[in-house]
Amino acid sequence: MMNGFEKRASLIKEKIMKTCLDMLRTTDLRGIRIADISKKAKVSQVTIYNYFGSKEALLQEVLKAYFDNIIREFEEYMNGGHTLKEKIEHIIFLEKESYKDISPGLIKELLIEDHELNQYVEKQYREKAIPLTIRIIEEGKKSGEISSDVSVESILAFIQLYMNQYETILEMAEKSGDMDQFLEGMVNMFFYGLCGKR
């Protein structure tokens, strides 16, 4: 149980992190300064340095919390009562919602610059997202919704291909004029191929 001081400290830390995350949504990485975070969060720069030590450490903590939240929501969705097609769509376009949040380009830049953060995200992906995805695929194979001729490995590879081209697909979807319809078409092709349902 937190005492009054710890609770207050936790709330201040949360406010600083939320302000930083909000700024990541609209500001170029180079444009984010402790002075601006301090002004927007209405706390002193000294307070920010006391809690986080540096801008880099603050960004790392903010992004770790951000990815933890994405993984938690992913797990909740996968364990919810959704159809296999909805689950596959969610896996492929997991970033569709977070793209509106923080651009994949910025996330990529942060991951290149911060080796520890990159390792953390890789570990979360490897230990949580991949096993859950494999479980969903295996359940689909058991129920006959996924062909027994297709291996789990090849489905994972196919999903990876989609995810690697995610930025390009999103740009095309935005240019199409109807993003949701475009992405729905991509999911249908992933799921049923060019010939559609038979």
Rank of each mutant, 00 (worst) to 15 (best):
L106S: 10
I112N: 09
I134D: 01
R126F: 10
E56M: 12
H115S: 14
G105M: 06
L94R: 09
F67V: 13
I102D: 05
Y49C: 08
E95H: 08
E75W: 01
K85N: 07
N118F: 01
K85H: 08
E86I: 05
N79L: 13
T133P: 04
N69Y: 02
E113Y: 07
L106E: 09
F52V: 05
A57M: 14
D68P: 08
E139F: 09
N50Q: 15
L59K: 04
G140N: 01
H90L: 08
Q119N: 02
I112P: 01
L117H: 00
E75C: 05
I107H: 01
I107F: 02
S143K: 12
L94T: 12
Q119G: 00
D68V: 07
D68T: 11
I134V: 15
G81A: 08
R126P: 03
E145Q: 12
D68Q: 12
K55G: 11
I71K: 05
E89H: 14
N79D: 15
E139P: 05
S103C: 03
Q60L: 06
N79V: 08
P131C: 03
Q124I: 03
I88D: 00
E138N: 14
I112S: 09
T83G: 13
F67W: 13
I134K: 06
L84C: 06
D101F: 04
H90Q: 11
I70G: 03
Y51C: 00
D114E: 14
R72Q: 07
I71S: 04
M78C: 04
T83P: 06
I107E: 01
K100I: 04
D114L: 12
E61R: 13
N50L: 15
Q60G: 09
S103R: 00
E97H: 15
I137G: 01
K141L: 02
L94K: 10
D101H: 07
E109N: 09
V62R: 00
I136S: 11
E76Y: 03
